[in-house]
Design a protein around this nucleic acid. Structure first.
Lengths: 206, 206, 206, 206
DNA sequence: AATGAATGAGTGTTCATTCAT
DNA sequence: AATGAATGAACACTCATTCAT
């Protein structure tokens, strides 16, 4: 411990410390959440995993739900960021390749943290503004944009088509990651690509 | 039913009473589950909703989990039965009409109890033998059979195709019921029919 | 079932039936008490073991404690009766042989139902009028009489001597039955006989 | 004690507080145990008697049984310590005086907490390693040693003699404390001394 | 007399949250 | 800011007893 107490140099270090603490708590929450599940996760467990006292938790979060919400939110945000990049990259590719790339990106993203995905899918209520709903809506938007960017994409109500496509792909990929069926990863990607392109082409033919 | 021994005669009303009681508890469990969610549901709440004492619950069920499991199981069983009938009826129709009828049946089934569907989807862990997983597997089987019954259906690995189709349709319909998007019911059915038939036809073309 | 309902011939059969029921309940109580211990014994267990309904228990006993009290009482009474006979028989014998015979009789009596003895000793409060205290007092009386019947027995306060002797012998024999130490039965009897006769003789010498 | 590190300094008061709390809970447990008996003692009663909340109990003890076990264990340990000292002191005295001193010490010890003694004797099962059985075995050992220390003490199997003596004296003294018979304390001590010395002398004469 | 379903107060225990230090 | 002991309402579940049948 150097010179005793340097008077308020700037708030920066304090804020940095605070941010660091929040990070630590979220990381601990992630850990415990994944190991014990939503309900079995207690604030004491989180505090212990974070190496702080239960009381300190409440300096940074108003209650237990807020901690776990942040864990989930952060995960959702990461998923969204990844998918945002993926869409951007695939936008220039022809339909089939673009679809394939996007589906692959989603599968990759989900496979990063299957355990958190499970908690997100199975143990968090999906209200209007739940992270999962928000993520889905962002996917809707990006998919709508991608459809409209394709030649002939605007013929049909792109938002409806996107809504269908997003939910179909979301659940097939999630099921693949969580159910671990006896299917090749490649096969799943192939089939999903078929499913989507078949749908999009057929629509265009109408 | 012969008349020989009184015990059966005696037990009959008793069994009826008992069955009635079990029904009442399941109904109360359903009610509370839907109103408060899985974790906030307490045995005392269920007892109160059933108009009985907490102790009586334990005459019919070994513990809280068993009560809620019965509520969920019964709901899943009903869904499965409905879908079983729907598949049977649509088997004779041409592909597009069959798909449409089945999708409609699934939507109908889900719309019967959206609140229970929400609990089932959002609050029950989806393990290997969870009701939801079991239901999905039954859908897989029925869909596989339906695909193979179509002319040219056996060309491709029907179980893989079925696995994809079931999860895609399952989630789109569930999302429609739970998210209540601004979409016509008819539109959703139309689009889903397109999605599936497009997929099936494209596959056959390969 | 013969002639329908013979009007009150006499109360005898009814009383006999009632007594039989009481017996059955006591026997069931004994069984359960010994198998599960005092606290783990429930009225439902007793009723089941007796082959009757829990409600019927209350036709014959006011509450659970009364049932178990009767089980214990009956056992104590049996012990007392055995010891009464033993004392009578040994009264004519010379001191050493009389003591030995009585000690042996007590050991025999305790070894008849070691499980009930354990419950009696370890799980029933020993109040002023508990069966165990009552039994001890009867033993006091019989021992006092035996001492006074011996030549020179009246020299000392026989009741005090009896009080000491009874408690010493009671506990050594009970400990032998319940603790099962690595000691010959014969050795225990020999030593107890020594203990008592040594005491009685020494007293007389004073 | 140097000043180098604060943790020990800090922890000291914490540990003291914790120890104090444990003491308070044990004291409360003692109180309630003695007033209500083992089974009627509830954790809530103990908490109330200790002036703390039920939850706090579990910061210091894993469950109810552990609390009461500590009450009993502590009492047994105290008894054992007292008797250990008594034996040591009486070892040098001639037999009669030694016996008398030891018997007196035991009576003193039991009379310190007659109410706890009652619970220990009447409401705790006496299994192989119950506090009471452990105490008895320690008394066996000390008595065996005392016998062998006397001239001519090794002539007979000292452990058998000790086993008999310990149980005889244990129960006579306990009965005196719990039954409160109309006997002088001095008389009981005199008679017990007679009983034991008579036995020991007679043995030696064989 | 007999039943056994129903009762409900009471149990041991947990854990999100608070607050004196 | 940080602590962690303390809180206490709430939980799932039990069982001696009652009473409508």
């Amino acid at each position: 411990m150097p010179s005793e107490s340097r008077p308020p140099l700037r708030r920066s270090p304090r804020q940095a410390r605070s941010k660091e603490m929040v990070e630590r708590i979220i990381a601990a929450g992630h850990l415990v959440l994944v190991e014990r599940g939503y309900d079995a996760t207690t604030t004491n467990h989180i505090a212990e995993a974070a190496g702080i006292s239960p009381g300190s938790l409440y300096q940074y979060f108003p209650n237990k739900a807020a901690i776990l919400a942040r864990v989930i939110d952060r995960y959702s945000a990461e998923l969204a960021a990844r998918m945002s990049r993926a869409f951007l990259q695939s936008l220039s590719a022809p339909t089939r390749e673009g679809v394939r790339a996007t589906v692959t990106a989603l599968l990759d993203a989900y496979e990063e943290h299957p355990d958190l995905l499970r908690v997100l899918v199975e143990q968090t209520p999906r209200t209007q503004n739940s992270p999962r709903a928000v993520f889905a809506r962002r996917m809707d938007d990006m998919t709508t944009a991608a459809i409209m960017a394709q030649p002939g994409g605007a013929e049909r109500p792109a938002d409806t088509v996107a809504w269908i496509v997003v939910r179909a792909v979301e659940h097939v990929t999630i099921s693949y990651v969580l159910e671990r069926p006896r299917l090749d990863r490649e096969t799943v990607i192939d089939e999903l690509t078929e499913l989507i392109t078949g749908y999009l082409n057929q629509r265009r033919r109408h």
